Computed example of a mutant assay.
Amino acid sequence: MPVYDSALDFGLLLLRVVLGLTMAAHGYNKFFGGGRIPGTAGWFDSIGMKPGVFHARMAATTEIAAGLGLAFGLLTPIPAAGFVALMLVAAWTVHRANGFFIVKEGWEYNLVLATGALTLAATGAGRYSLDYLLFGDCEMASLLHGWCGLAIAAGLGLLGGIGQLVIFFRPPAK
């Protein structure tokens, strides 16, 4: 394998692992950190995502599953869609009013995580992934990257995030 190919595959591995474990850590923290699910549920209720307990459990579970799925490169467009949905909901409910920059609690970080995941859906997970181990270069592999992977991740992610906002988000009265 040419040096460029192995460096590219290593770069994809590095990006997947950093993004994935970062997201999984957020989910783990919701389950086992300071306020755990009850504290997270109260916060979700306070921002208008009701019922809070349901959203706390769903967010934590999705963050762990999407994070580990991306880190391992397993059906990459699916966990990437999870990132898009999670980050869309977080950006809209929590960070939108604060502007762009993260230093003012804006939506910059949400954009970076979602874009990184979409990029991996477009490029594919690389040779150091479960996608490559399971599917290699077969026909199924073509659904896991390129325009198809990007469309799956963006479409499912937007559908999931917008659907969740439409069905559940009720901004608190100011």
Rank of each mutant, 00 (worst) to 15 (best):
R96G: 02
A91L: 05
A122L: 13
G106C: 09
A114N: 10
A90M: 07
A121N: 09
G116D: 01
F100E: 03
K104D: 11
L111M: 13
F101T: 06
A121P: 01
A114S: 14
A97N: 04
A90S: 12
V94G: 00
L120M: 14
L118H: 08
G116I: 04
H95I: 01
A117H: 13
W107M: 09
F100I: 06
A121V: 04
V94L: 11
T115V: 15
T123G: 02
L111P: 00
A122I: 02
G99D: 02
L113H: 06
T123F: 15
H95A: 10
G116M: 12
G106E: 12
K104I: 04
L113C: 01
N110F: 10
A97Q: 10
L113F: 11
A97W: 07
T119I: 09
L113I: 10
V89N: 14
V89I: 15
L120C: 07
A114F: 11
N110C: 04
K104V: 11
T123R: 07
T119C: 03
R96V: 09
A114K: 08
H95Q: 09
K104C: 03
T93D: 05
A122E: 05
A91K: 05
E108K: 10
A114V: 01
T93M: 08
N110L: 08
F101L: 11
K104N: 15
F101A: 13
I102P: 01
